[in-house]
Each structure stands twice: as structure tokens, then as C-alpha cells.
Simulated scan of single mutants.
Amino acid sequence: MKSFKHLLGIALFTMITGTAYGCDLKSKESQNTALVTKSIIHKPAKQYVKIALLLDTSNSMDGLINQAKAQLWDIVNEFTHAKCGNESRPSLQIALYEYGNDNLSSNEGYIRQVINFSSDLDEISEKLFSLTTNGGEEYCGEVIQTSLKQLDWGKSADDLKMIFIAGNEPFTQGKLNYKDATSNAREKDVIVNTIFCGNYEQGISTSWKNGATLTGGEYMAIDHNRQVVHIETPYDDVIIKLNSQLNKTYISYGALGREKKAKQSMQDSNAQEMAAAVAVKRTVSKGSRLYKNSTWDLVDAVEDNEEVLEELEVEDLPSELKEKSEGEIKKYLKEKKTEREKIQKQIQELNKKREAFIAKNQKEETGELENALLSAIKAQASKKNYKWD
């Protein structure tokens, strides 16, 4: 066994490069799934769904942040079932910015990158729950431009790249003209969707609709202070209990593993405190292909690369594995993987029944932000040849 640092480098590389193949719209390439020539397998280039959430965190935006905390899992669960034209699955990355908060630096335009593009769902959740509000100046054009400059949007025309900016002050505020920012977005093939927190007509008169139209995005107006309607179902308690069982299949390793395992538990608690339904949605996300933790969970790490066990020092192993041989460790991890897959399958099957129950009993719309996000995502994904199973 070698150094843990070497393993961490491998694991981080694995996460950054993604875990699934996405939408390859080039007609010639989309016809070929995998060609084997002289033992070399050629697969379509990995594609991504990249979403940047730009949230106004001024005094009046507490309701918006609360909705975002709850609806993160709706975005994840939406893309769990997404397929591209070549039948492969896209990888999802989410970035988060806050703007318009007096606690932020005026030199930076009252803008802060909260998290770069990431597929670490626990980390994204933690960052959302860390947001607080305080009055400030909201510069929409500048925060769009900042996200375009700082984030690696990639150059693939097949990636689905979207910005969602939400706020309630005129879109024209700030020194940087929003039209220049949206022009830069078009150059990068990034769609800007605007969510005005207030009256629909007021959003139009303050240029929020124009900000979206310039990139082919959607303009939406929501009541950000509206309470999210959660419909309880007979399946909720069972799914939440399965979440506890699922957590026991995660085998953390090294210092990072202990930290991440604690974070997993904390984000479970944060979701539960918001509402049982939010905890259910998070559990459904954890039961999906998009919840991968190869940087700290030995089951996921070995699934990606069995050789990682050879790189570990004994002290980096959890206590239950320290006295085991490499063969015994592999057997143990295989058993945990089988157990996890069984639980995840149960979660997904119960969620189908849960969704059917909600569809039958839902008398009013659910979260305002949820509707805005998912309707725009579906519309824009269809243009990139996405479909859902």
C-alpha cells in the first residue's frame, strides 16, 4: 500500500472527469456506440449538464433561498432519468453564486462564488444552507459576467449550459450593461434564464424578460415568499428509513472520509428540518446514479478503480477493515455494494409510487421556484436532444 495522497489525486481526477456519458448530437458520432479496433474502445466524448445558480441574497430574499434549498433535489432527480440521443446518461454539475449582499466585497460588485461547478451533492447542499441575507446592491449584468469568466463552461456544443439568475431589483443596475453579459453568454453557448421575484409585468418593465430573451432563455416570475406545498404520501416514512440503511453502506477512508461522512449526515438533518418531503427528495437523489462519492467512500472508489486498495496505508482504512486482508476487504466492499444497490432499487421503486400518489392528489402547484426551474430545463434540454425515461 502506497500513499493516501496518491489515491486522493486519482479519486479527484475521477470525479472531475465525470461519471457518465452525455448527449452527442453530431449525427455521425451518435450512430456509433462503441467501436472496438485493435483492442481500443472508442466511446462518445463525455458530455455535461452545467447549471449555475445566481441567487440574490439581499434582505428580501430569505424565501428564495429556502425554496432553492428544497428544490436542489428536484433538479438532481430530474436529470437522474435524462438520456441523450445516443442513449447515454449526462453528468450533472452545479455552481452557486450569491450577489446583492452587504456582507460581500463592494470591490467585487457584491458578488461571491459560493461553489464552483461540482457534482458533490452534499457539498452543494451545505453551501446552499450556509447562505444568509443582508441588504445590498444587486448587479445582474456583473454577476452573469463573473460566472461566465470564472467557471469552466467547456467548448462542447453538445453540453447543456444554463444560468438561472433570480432577484427582484431592476436588471439594469450596475456599471456593466446586462446586454454585454448576455452577448458573452451567447458566445459561450450559455442560456440565461431569469427568475423575477415579484409581479410578472414589473419584471418585464425592469428588463428581466429581455435579459432572458437575448440568449433564448426563459423569463419567469415567482412569488418567492410562497410556502412550498409538500404532499405527504404513504411512502415517505419508508423512504426515510431506507436512507438510514443506505448510509450504513458508505465506508469512509482517510481524513477526508471522516469529514465527508459527517457532512452527509448533516445534510440529511438539514433536509429533514426543512420538511419530511425534502428529506424524501434528498433520499431519492442519494438513491440515484448522480450521487457518487469516490473521493471518500471506498465502495465507490473501488468500483471506479480496484487498484486504489493497493495505494492505501492501513491507518487510512476504517477500523472494521484494518485487520482484514486485501481479499477480505474486496469481499466486504462487494457485499456493501450489493446491499447499496438493493436499497437504492427499493428507494426508486417506492418513489415511483410516491410520484403517482402526488400526481393523483395534488390540488395546487408545488414550489414556485421548482416549477420555474424544471419547465426551463425541460424546454432547453429538448433542444439538445435530451429525453426522459
Rank of each mutant, 00 (worst) to 15 (best):
residue 4 F to E: 11
residue 6 H to Y: 13
residue 6 H to F: 08
residue 12 L to E: 10
residue 23 C to D: 07
residue 26 K to T: 10
residue 29 E to H: 03
residue 29 E to M: 03
residue 30 S to Y: 10
residue 35 L to K: 10
residue 38 K to S: 07
residue 40 I to E: 12
residue 43 K to M: 13
residue 44 P to L: 06
residue 45 A to R: 14
residue 52 A to V: 07
residue 52 A to H: 06
residue 58 S to D: 09
residue 59 N to Y: 05
residue 60 S to C: 05
residue 66 N to E: 09
residue 67 Q to P: 08
residue 68 A to K: 06
residue 74 D to V: 00
residue 76 V to Y: 01
residue 80 T to G: 00
residue 87 E to R: 10
residue 89 R to H: 08
residue 91 S to F: 01
residue 94 I to Q: 08
residue 96 L to Q: 05
residue 104 L to P: 04
residue 105 S to N: 03
residue 108 E to L: 09
residue 109 G to E: 11
residue 111 I to K: 06
residue 112 R to K: 12
residue 114 V to T: 12
residue 116 N to G: 06
residue 121 L to R: 05
residue 127 K to F: 00
residue 133 T to E: 11
residue 136 G to P: 02
residue 139 Y to L: 09
residue 140 C to Q: 09
residue 151 L to Y: 04
residue 157 A to I: 05
residue 164 F to K: 01
residue 178 Y to E: 15
residue 182 T to S: 12
residue 184 N to C: 02
residue 184 N to R: 03
residue 189 D to T: 04
residue 195 I to N: 05
residue 206 T to K: 12
residue 209 K to N: 14
residue 213 T to W: 04
residue 215 T to M: 10
residue 230 H to M: 07
residue 234 P to C: 05
residue 238 V to Y: 02
residue 239 I to E: 06
residue 243 N to R: 08
residue 244 S to H: 13
residue 259 E to G: 00
residue 281 K to A: 12
residue 282 R to D: 05
residue 292 K to I: 11
residue 294 S to W: 09
residue 294 S to H: 10
residue 299 V to H: 14
residue 305 N to L: 07
residue 306 E to W: 02
residue 323 E to F: 07
residue 324 K to M: 14
residue 338 T to R: 09
residue 342 K to N: 14
residue 344 Q to V: 08
residue 349 E to K: 14
residue 350 L to K: 02
residue 352 K to Q: 15
residue 353 K to L: 13
residue 355 E to Q: 15
residue 361 N to H: 13
residue 368 E to M: 06
residue 370 E to F: 00
residue 370 E to W: 00
residue 371 N to G: 10
residue 372 A to H: 04
residue 376 A to M: 10
residue 387 K to I: 02
residue 389 D to S: 14
